[in-house]
Design a protein around this nucleic acid. Structure first.
Length: 541
RNA sequence: GCGCCUAUAGCUCAGUGGACAGAGCGCCGGCCUCCGGAGCCGGGUGCGGAGGUUCGAAUCCUCCUAGGCGCACCA
């Protein structure tokens, strides 16, 4: 049909010509027929079903792996939450999608690393130090108030207490903190609940001694907070190959080098006391500041340096998962990389939509500004890792996600993750029964007369199992890990249907063996799919 | 104002040029002498609107409508 125009021939005629010239000898194709407006239907030989099952059983835990990646090195950067507080539920969605995307890319033949970027430098760390200072002084019985824009979260009180316990507070400067008496600064925008604290810190008094103290406090807090983030992610079964610190990039002079290279290349210029990137030359709708009037780098500079570092480490392709609230950032980042001579197409940004928690049909309100948000740790006290991973994976990345806490905790078939796990457990149970009945399972699987699987539910299930490698490839290539939940559910559904219609263990030993082989293949596919998703495949429930 | 995302069944969502548009939930009705009923089977309504491209459009293009997000010398 695609050729019809070019060949100036009716689609059906082309199809008929193709079919006439097909030689199915020695293939699994029985015959081919022209259908409809010009489709060609291939009818597969009965042997195909048996070949699929034998292939699955032979490949075992490797069934589903494909090699579209051909070993290309890919770096997936995800979560990368600020080291200024514990991870929240939004990070949990990022952790799930990033981890499973990385895993499915591995299955598709890419060589993948997972990385977490820790923004442990710059203004926000200074604000963290300020909040720590206030908490320390409050713990020592002084009157102290958080400066404008500081992190209000109470988690810092515990960390401040730890700091005092470990180091005391003797090296604390005696004078007033640099923000006291500084000019009042209006909050950036009073009505947005979710925005990060404002950053009026350049209005602070110059006080190097106090700044050094704030820096000590901030470093201590960052270390504790990052340890906490690592711990909860480990509990969530996400392991990063590397935690890359912004301070590493800065210590190596990365930001300075980036600005210098951009100047050399003629893509940076000075205006209004700042240094600008001519990003409009690379598709951005305005030029962007690189070095602020106060001499500090904007966020993008160390980040560009970090990405240069990624390329220098030999990755062919970079994938970053960002929150929807960072939308548009990729234009700037790609512009800067292109200005430095890198291929901007080697960087791919995926934006994840919002998460809403729903309990009892009501949305759970979360606000960063008021320090009210559901931490990932608290969240995992309510929801199992298996359920959480499934639910966060269920939706496509560009769709908002309502996480129904009540449904995720249900242990019934209403809950899709249980439905799938139940199918796996049920198959395991059949094998326990078979062994108890004295069935020589290994032998039966090896010699099973697979041609006896002729019932429609049996054949339908085999066809579904055969799709798994394609599903892996599509999930990887299209960056759609959510396909895996749908596919696993379909396999489970196909199995339950087969199970209800076909008795596995019976008096006909040959038929039983063939059906056991189908069960074994199904169990393998479910286990492999769940393994990619990082979800347990229980033998009993 | 500019840019991006979303709009598909009562609800939540799949479906990125092909055959009658799918699943889960909800609703109605069936199925347990037997391998785990945490299961199975049946029942019906839909592509936000208008144009266009194409042999063929939920899918691509244009405009419109509605919702969300972004447009910092914040990170």
């Amino acid at each position: 049909m695609v050729l019809a125009r070019e060949a100036r021939t009716a689609p059906r005629q082309i199809a008929e010509a193709v079919v006439r010239h097909l030689d199915p000898q020695g293939t699994l194709v029985e015959r081919a027929e022209v259908a409809g407006p010009g489709f060609i239907n291939f009818f597969l030989k009965e042997e195909w079903l048996a070949a699929v099952l034998r292939g699955i059983l032979a490949a075992g835990p490797d069934y589903g792996k494909v090699d579209v990646g051909r070993g290309q090195r890919v770096l997936v950067e995800f979560v990368s939450a600020n080291p200024t507080g514990p991870l929240n539920v939004v990070s949990a969605r990022h952790a799930t999608v990033g981890d499973v995307l990385a895993e499915v890319l591995e299955w598709a033949g890419f060589s993948v690393d997972r990385e977490f970027y820790v923004n442990d430098a710059g203004n926000q760390v200074r604000m963290l130090g300020a909040a720590m200072d206030v908490r320390v002084r409050q713990l020592l019985g002084e009157d102290a108030e958080l400066p404008e824009g500081a992190y209000p979260g109470e988690y810092l009180i515990d960390i401040a207490r730890e700091y005092i316990a470990q180091y005391g507070a003797h090296d604390r400067p005696q004078g007033p903190p640099p923000w006291v008496g500084a000019a009042e600064v209006q909050p950036a925008d009073g009505d947005n609940d979710d925005e990060e604290p404002a950053a009026p810190s350049r209005k602070w008094r110059h006080d190097p001694v106090y700044e050094a103290w704030l820096d000590r406090l901030a470093r201590f807090a960052v270390e504790r907070i990052v340890e906490g983030q690592k711990a909860v992610l480990r509990q969530y079964r996400v392991e990063f190959d590397r935690w890359f610190h912004e301070s590493e990039v800065r210590a190596a002079g990365g930001p300075e080098a980036v600005v210098e290279r951009l100047r050399q290349a003629g893509h940076a210029y000075e205006a209004d006391g700042a240094v600008w990137l001519r990003s409009t030359a690379f598709g951005d709708d305005k030029d962007r500041v690189l070095v602020k009037r106060d001499g500090n780098f904007t966020y993008i500079v160390p980040d560009v340096a970090y990405h240069v570092n990624k390329f220098e480490r030999g990755y062919h392709h970079l994938i970053n998962l960002l929150g929807r609230d960072h939308y548009g950032y990729h234009v700037r980042l790609k512009a800067a990389l292109a200005a430095l001579g890198f291929n901007p197409d080697a960087l791919e940004i995926i934006y994840l939509q919002m998460v809403h928690l729903v309990r009892g049909g009501q949305e759970v309100r979360m606000s960063k500004r008021r320090g009210e948000f559901v931490t990932m740790a608290d969240f995992l006290k309510e929801v199992s890792v298996d359920a959480a991973r499934w639910f966060f994976l269920m939706r496509s990345t560009d769709s908002e996600l309502d996480f129904d806490l009540d449904l995720a905790n249900l242990q019934t078939s209403d809950n899709p993750v249980y439905y799938v796990q139940y199918a796996h457990a049920r198959i395991c149970s059949i094998f326990r029964q078979a062994k108890a009945a004295g069935f020589a399972v290994e032998q039966a699987l090896a010699d099973a007369p697979l041609e006896r699987l002729v019932e429609e539910p049996e054949r339908e299930l085999v066809r579904k199992l055969a799709e798994f490698p394609d599903e892996v490839e599509l999930a990887a290539v299209r960056r759609e890990p959510h396909r895996l939940t749908r596919y696993a559910h379909e396999v489970a559904s196909g199995f339950h249907s087969f199970y209800t219609h076909c008795r596995v263990l019976g008096e006909d030993a040959g038929l039983s063996a063939a059906r056991l082989a189908l069960c074994a293949a199904t169990r393998q596919v479910l286990a492999n799919a769940l393994a990619i998703m990082g979800i347990n495949a229980p033998e009993e429930m």
